[in-house]
Amino acid sequence: MNLSTDIWVWVGVFLTFCIYSFLYRDNPFYKFGEHLFVGVSNAFTLSFMVHRIIIPILVRPFTEAWRTAGSEGLSAGLFNPYAPSNFLVIIPGVIGCFYFARFIPGLTWLVRIPIALFMGYYVGRSVPAYLEGSVFPQMRGTMLTQASFDPAQGGILGGIFALLVLVGVIGTLTYFFFSKEHKGVVKWGAQTGIVFVMVGFGASFGFTVMARVSLAIGRFIFILRDALGIVT
C-alpha cells in the first residue's frame, strides 16, 4: 500500500466513484458528477474553440489586415480570401451571426443560410466518399474470380468461403429490399440474409466484450495502482 499524495489523483478517484455509483442507482453523487462533467467539458470546448479557431482563423487575419491597411493602405491582397490576412474573413463571421437571427422577428429565415451551407456541403461530399471508399472496393472484394480457388489462398475451401460471402451479401441486400413483401423467393433470400446478419451481430457483440472490459480494467488499475498503490 502506497497512497498517492497527488490531490488530482484523489479528485479522479472521487469522480470515478461518483459515476460508478450510478450502477447502484441515481443519487446525488452521480448528479454532481454528471453536472460537473457537462459544465467543465463545455468550458474546455469553448476555450479550445476560442484559442484554436476564433482567434487564429477569424480575429487574427482581420486584425492583421487592419494593421497592414493602416500602414500600407488598402490593397487587393487584403481582399483575397485565401491570404493569411484579409478582410473577407468577416463574411464567414457574418454568416455565423445569422444563427442569432432567430431572435430577430422577420429575419428568422436567415438561420437557414448557415444550415444550408453545412448540410449541402457535407451531404455532397459524402456521396463519392461512400462510393469510392466503400462500394467499389467492397463490391470488388465480393466478386469471385478463379483466383478465389487458388491453392495458395485456401484452395477449394477458400473458394467456398468466398462464395458464402457472396451469398451472404446478396441475401442481406434482399433482406433490405423494400418493394416486395418477404414472400416466395424474396423470403428465402431475406431469410438467408438475416442468418448472416444475426451471426455477424453476435460475433460483433462477443468481440466487443473485450474492449469494454479493457476500459473497466483501466479504471480499476487507476484506483489500485495510481491512488492506492496496491499493484504495480
Partner: peptide
Amino acid sequence: SQWIMEVPNTAAKRGIELGITLGVLATF
C-alpha cells in the same frame, strides 16, 4: 471465431454497407 468474423460477419457488414451507400445517395 475468426472464420465467423471473416465470412458471415463480413458478408453481413458488406450487405448493410452497400445498402447504406444507397441510403446516402437517396438522402443527397
